[in-house]
Simulated assay, not measured.
Amino acid sequence: MLEKTLVIIKPDGVKRGLVGEIIKRYEQKQLVIKSIKIVNADYTLLREHYYEHIGKSYFNELLNYMMSGPLIAIIWEGENAIKLARYINGDTNIEKAMPGTIRGDFASNTTYNLVHASDSAESAERELKLWFPEL
């Protein structure tokens, strides 16, 4: 079944010049870009995106990091796109991220972990509407 999912290449991925390499990894797994844009995310957008983390000790640091520079928002489509994108990304904890994943190969800090991907069909639907309201 074809699915759509949101992937965000976070500011550290953009700053480090890894956008092409990151996109290549999804394409190699036969995911297809349906829409892509560069975003300078603001507090309101990020607060809504990360609403489940409100009140946690790292919330403000996370939002400040995500506002620190441009990011790339991408709608990917493909067979099992949600699960596949998360597999390609690797574990959010870089100490557990396997070699061959984006985080396993390039992340050096759990906070600055290069990419985000929707974790479920429900999250993908909510996040796609949030990041791509024009579609």
Rank of each mutant, 00 (worst) to 15 (best):
I82W: 05
S57M: 13
V7W: 03
M66L: 13
F59P: 02
R86W: 12
G100N: 02
P99T: 13
N113T: 08
G20I: 05
L2H: 12
S118R: 01
E122C: 09
E122D: 14
A41G: 04
M98V: 12
S68G: 15
I23F: 10
R103S: 07
L2F: 12
I88Y: 01
I33H: 06
A117K: 02
I102Q: 07
A85G: 04
G13P: 06
A121F: 08
I23L: 15
Y65S: 07
T101V: 07
G90K: 03
R47Y: 13
I33D: 08
T5N: 04
R25C: 08
R126H: 06
N89I: 15
H116G: 03
S123Y: 00
F59E: 07
D12E: 15
I72T: 09
L46R: 07
F106L: 14
P11Y: 03
M66E: 01
R103Q: 06
T101Y: 06
R47A: 15
D119H: 01
R16W: 10
K4F: 05
Q30R: 12
S118G: 04
H49L: 08
G100M: 09
N40Y: 14
I33E: 09
L63K: 04
M66W: 02
I72Q: 15
E127S: 01
R103C: 10
D119W: 00
A41M: 08
S118N: 00
S57Y: 12
A73Q: 07
G90C: 11
K83R: 14
R25Y: 06
V7R: 02
L71F: 09
E95I: 05
Y26G: 06
